[in-house]
Design a protein around this nucleic acid. Structure first.
Length: 568
DNA sequence: GCCGTTTTCGGCCCGACTGTTTTCAGTCG
């Protein structure tokens, strides 16, 4: 898929146009980039059908550039702009506080093209003499370069969420109301920073407590209504305090996404209103229509309440206007976990320990899916061990009579698409999870064939972590998504949403696509110890971001129904 | 450069904080 590549080019064009003080075009390019980036379909397919201009935000001119990129692998307009200001935009704009205007100034005056140039100039005290700059700006740049290098920016949802909850728990003592906002509340797979919103009878005290928390490494800004700190863990946290009457509109505003808010504000304008963080106002009389609750704001705009996970401008605004939002699956609908490992292979706990933890989490079933076959690193079990494990699970099922343990295995899909275990054994276990662990450097067509062969194998129930990506570490494997998802549906194979924080695979976009294609999904934590069974909530988050309803997620089914599905 | 439930031309979301300023531009969300 060239979607990301193309989106990146348009984002950069937007920045470069902004450097040249071009009006409005940057916004147009950014919008197109955002829409292309979140397409679930390969943009080349859309191009082949001649439907590029049907993508929102893509008109004649941008469609031309997409076409040019697909056909020639480059965009002349982009190359031309790059020559005018030949800097490493991605690198430089990763430094907090550096935007297009400053980057341009730094290049024009000092020839700064990348982080190294920037650091050198700052250390030599050259930046402070530029117009609009000073000593403090220079100092800040130096500090932020170091940070930009160290962190690379974003952190995983699964790591940010517990930390954020801890802060909320501490701060709520000083607040009347408090909530997460921003990308964390939307449960994006990675988080740039944490946003917290609060109402307080004693705002000053709350700000003081916030900026003096143990976790704080540095206070970046402190004001009456907004403060920012950097935690020792490197995460930036913004706290905003608003009036009680504005809490709903502020929460809506600070939850974003930015693109979602732009759409919602347009609806407001269309109705003769104005929407900002203080409330929804009648434009003429300036009378406040709503603002205390988010629900009230959406309602006043004639929309259904939109759950935060959907607020990505992927069609939710239109759906909410039409009363057509999905009834999203909830954590409480999920009755069990469909992938985990124990001491039988590479896990840390026994089956019984996993059962007990599952019960604690409110599950009524789990699937034990240890590695089998020649995947020796993961302690793959042989045929005899599988039979022994079967006996242990049988007796545990008798012991815990309100709880059910499915006996499963996770089997490797070999390079040729065959499974790494004899069919005879696989037929005897309850549930077979197939997955790719060694991706080689297979071309897309071969990878597609490999997956299709596995999906067509009648013993396979679930395809786990289908793209095998590791966030920020390993690229997703490339395959023909349409063909593979079609085959999953036709062969009644469930696709997994793997809930490991660095996997989240399928991701929200692909999972949404799978649902649209009629494929069923499962959530598996892939836990290798009992503590990480709690990652189930990350899987639910991805499902919700994928617009999944209860019926789309098999973890919500009864044990009987699952047994039938697995014995297909 | 895109778009249309007033529009095929004339609009395009809105406000806080910072650092430099003495009234504001740039950045961020």
């Amino acid at each position: 898929m060239k979607n990301r590549e193309i989106a990146k080019i348009f984002y950069e064009i937007a920045d470069m146009l902004e450097m040249q003080d071009v009006q409005f075009k940057p916004r147009a390019y950014r919008k197109a980039a955002q829409n292309i980036e979140s397409l679930s379909e390969d943009i080349e397919e859309i191009y082949k059908r001649g439907e590029l201009e049907k993508i929102p935000g893509v008109g004649k001119s941008i469609a031309e550039k997409v076409k040019e990129f697909i056909e020639k692998g480059s965009v002349a307009y982009y190359e031309k702009l790059k020559k005018e200001i030949p800097v490493n935009l991605e690198e430089l704009s990763s430094v907090e506080g550096l935007g297009p205007k400053m980057i341009k100034l730094l290049y024009k005056e000092l020839g700064i093209k990348n982080l190294n140039d920037l650091e050198k100039a700052a250390k030599e005290g050259k930046i402070r003499h530029l117009k609009g700059m000073g000593e403090r700006t220079e100092q800040k740049i130096l500090e932020n370069i170091e940070f930009a290098r160290k962190k690379g920016g974003r952190i995983l949802l699964g790591f940010a969420l517990p930390e954020a909850m801890k802060l909320i728990k501490f701060l709520e003592k000083y607040a009347e109301k408090i909530s997460l906002a921003g990308s964390l509340r939307r449960r994006k797979e990675t988080i740039g920073d944490m946003d917290i919103l609060a109402v307080s009878l004693n705002p000053e005290k709350l700000m003081d407590e916030f900026t003096s928390m143990n976790e704080v490494d540095k206070i970046l800004a402190k004001g009456e209504t907004k403060s920012s700190v950097r935690l020792k863990s490197g995460i930036q946290v913004d706290l905003r305090i608003v009036d009680k009457e504005s809490f709903g509109s502020a929460l809506q505003y600070f939850t974003g996404s930015k693109e979602h808010n732009i759409e919602v504000r347009k609806i407001a304008v269309r109705n003769g209103y104005k929407l900002n963080e203080y409330g929804l106002f009648d434009k003429k009389s300036n009378k406040k229509i709503a603002g205390e609750t988010e629900e009230g704001v959406y309602k006043a705009l004639g929309m259904q309440y939109i759950p935060p996970e959907l607020r990505e401008n992927r069609g939710e605004v239109e759906a909410a206007l039409n009363g057509a939002l999905p009834a999203l699956v909830e954590r409480k609908d999920v009755r069990g976990d469909l992938q985990m490992h124990t001491k039988w292979s590479d896990g840390a706990n026994t089956i019984e320990e996993m059962v007990k933890e599952g019960i604690k989490l409110g599950h009524s079933f789990i699937a034990i899916t240890d590695h089998v076959g020649t995947l020796k690193i993961a302690g793959g079990m042989g045929e005899e061990e599988i039979r022994k494990q079967m006996k242990e699970i049988e007796s545990l099922n008798e012991k815990y009579d309100d709880f059910h343990i499915f006996h499963g295995v996770e089997v490797n899909i070999l390079k040729d698409g065959n499974l790494d275990m004899s069919r005879k054994v696989l037929k005897d276990v309850d549930v077979v999870i197939a997955s790719i662990h060694s991706a080689f450097r297979q071309p897309m067509e071969e990878m597609t064939k490999r997956l299709l062969k596995a999906l067509e194998n009648d013993v396979v129930d679930i395809l786990a972590h289908p793209t095998a990506r590791i966030i920020y570490k390993r690229e997703a494997i490339k395959f023909d998504v349409e063909k593979v998802f079609d085959a999953a549906r036709e062969n009644d194979v469930i696709l997994e949403i793997n809930a490991q924080p660095d996997r989240l695979d399928l991701n929200d976009i692909l999972a949404k696509k799978a649902i649209e294609m009629g494929v069923k999904l499962s959530i598996g934590t892939d836990a290798h110890n009992k503590e990480t069974l709690r990652y189930i909530e990350l899987g639910v988050a991805v499902a919700r971001r994928a617009w999944a309803e209860k019926k789309d997620i098999v973890n919500t089914y009864s044990i009987d129904k699952l047994e039938k599905i697995f014995s297909k």
